[in-house]
């Protein structure tokens, strides 16, 4: 399940990554969203949205505030039910996965912790529920560099520490797919640099990342392709290399699409 890790990343090499990964992962898309619609009363949060993600890619999920990004992620993760259409991970609804934590890791909010529980106990609770060995908790505390703070209550953590603890929780089951909602919020430059390197390595192992963001400069440095939505509808899905090949920047394309939509 773990193809050879590559040492160096350059955007020009991205096209070459795919064939090697085809052996590791089935051709079935990791995420497939089809005609997905979610309405809350009269408000349409997501409307007839269709896109899919292949293994081994980092995809940026972009759109203005209120575009429906978070709703889409919640529908994918079984936290909310679609009004129509379907949102599948590994060809199943999330609720039907046998051991979801071992397939999919997700961080939706940066502060989903009990303030009075220690970071270590937070992870142990999740590990118990997912039947993940306790040693894995210590591994992840080391990976996100929270060993020293692990015994402290989360209320004493900085926002960056909470982001890392959330990520550790998502990675407990060593998942193949990682879904992050606005992970850049609250990260300092060093934290951002660390996260970017982490996501690249994760994808190079043939795994898949879907990361929502509205920090375009950050996205442009991290992702292989972008899915841009606005008002619940798909505007475009395109490999980043294709944009740069046409001499466009992500910002130009994004602003052109979202402005066109608004007028």
């Amino acid at each position: 399940m773990q193809p050879e890790a590559r040492t160096e990343t350059q955007s020009g090499e991205q096209a070459r990554r795919r064939p090697a990964l085809a052996e590791a992962a089935p051709r079935e898309p990791v995420i497939s969203v089809h005609a997905l619609t979610k309405r809350y009363g009269d408000v349409v949060a997501v409307e007839d949205l269709t896109f899919s993600l292949e293994a081994g890619t980092v995809t940026g999920f972009l759109g203005p505030n209120g575009a429906g990004k978070t709703t889409t992620l919640r529908l994918l993760l079984g936290l909310a039910r679609p009004t129509a259409g379907e949102a599948l991970v590994f060809g199943c609804r999330y609720r039907e996965l046998d051991s979801p934590a071992r397939r999919v890791g997700a961080v939706l909010e940066s502060n989903d912790f009990h303030p009075g529980r220690s970071g270590r106990d937070h992870l142990r609770v999740l590990a118990l529920a997912a039947e993940i060995p306790r040693s894995r908790v210590e591994e992840l505390l080391a990976l996100v560099e929270l060993e020293a703070a692990a015994g402290r209550r989360v209320k004493t953590y900085s926002l960056g520490m909470r982001q890392r603890l959330g990520l550790a929780g998502a990675l407990l089951g060593d998942p193949e797919l990682l879904i992050l909602d606005e992970p850049a919020n609250g990260l300092d430059p060093a934290g951002m640099h660390w996260l970017r390197g982490f996501l690249r390595r994760f994808a190079e192992e043939g795994r898949t990342v879907l990361v929502s963001s509205h920090v375009l400069a950050e996205v442009a440095q991290t992702v292989d392709r972008v899915v841009i939505i606005d008002r619940g509808r798909l505007l475009t899905t395109v490999p980043l290399a294709e944009l740069t090949g046409r001499g466009q920047t992500l910002e130009e394309v994004y602003l052109g699409l979202t402005a066109g939509e608004a007028s």
């Binding site: 993760l77 999330y94 979801p100 909010e109 989903d112 929780g169």
Partner: peptide
Amino acid sequence: TGEIRHGTIRPTFLMTPR
């Protein structure tokens, strides 16, 4: 209600969607 208030209901249901 504590899980709903602090948001831990999300990781709880992600680990155990049933």
